[in-house]
């Protein structure tokens, strides 16, 4: 029996300390997804809590057909999508448009003082990521921060592998082009 099996068995037996361990192990993953998808700071922590409460309530139905991290990430993604739908945030489910139209749609306001005052690449990058469609942001986070494979991301988002790969390439290209268009390469990557 693997460590995860053992942990889940203990949680289902009612051991609260085991569930605390699960929270500690996966709170980083959950908060990455929630913080990247939801811009309202006041709601982020509540959403993270909601995700773990759903995990607790549905753990008995977990069939070990996927990794527990993928299963938890999927709950987090769906929770955020439902929240965004409730808040009537446009999700742009169909991102099969050309790069130019996506670029125009999500270009944002470049004249903002905040952008101009950003001193380092990380703040500039975070601001640019925030302008991307929610699916692009989530894929970037899961791939680069949480080191998930295309197959795992595809399971979390409920999209084919090819779409995930395509969105990831386009998101990175958009980011690189937008950053390069605003800054000299030397200034940007110094």
């Amino acid at each position: 029996m693997t460590e995860t099996h053992e942990l889940i068995k203990r949680i289902l037996a009612g051991e609260t300390a085991a569930f605390r361990s699960l929270i500690l192990a996966y709170q980083r993953l959950v908060s990455h997804i929630v913080f990247r998808m939801v811009s309202n700071a006041a709601d982020r922590e509540d959403l993270c809590q909601d995700v773990f409460i759903k995990v607790y309530q549905n753990l008995g139905g977990f069939q070990f057909e996927s990794k527990i991290s993928t299963w938890i990430a999927k709950i987090a993604y769906n929770t955020c999508i439902n929240y965004l739908k409730k808040k009537k945030v446009p999700l742009y489910d169909d991102l099969t448009a050309t790069e130019e139209s996506i670029e125009n749609k999500f270009s944002g306001d470049d004249s903002s003082d905040a952008f101009a005052l950003s001193s380092d690449i990380n703040s500039r990058l975070q601001q640019e990521i925030a302008k991307l469609p929610v699916q692009y942001r989530t894929i970037l986070t899961l791939y680069h921060l949480d080191e998930m494979s295309y197959a795992e991301i595809s399971e979390v988002l409920g999209m084919p592998d090819g779409t995930v790969k395509n969105y990831l390439f386009r998101a990175r290209k958009l980011l690189k082009d937008r950053l390069n268009s605003k800054y000299q390469v030397e200034e940007l990557w110094q």
């Binding site: 500690l24 709170q27 990455h32 929630v34 913080f35």
Partner: peptide, 9 residues
């Protein structure tokens, strides 16, 4: 600032 200091437990 993605939440590293967040303690949810």
């Amino acid at each position: 600032e993605l939440s590293t200091r967040l303690d949810l437990a």
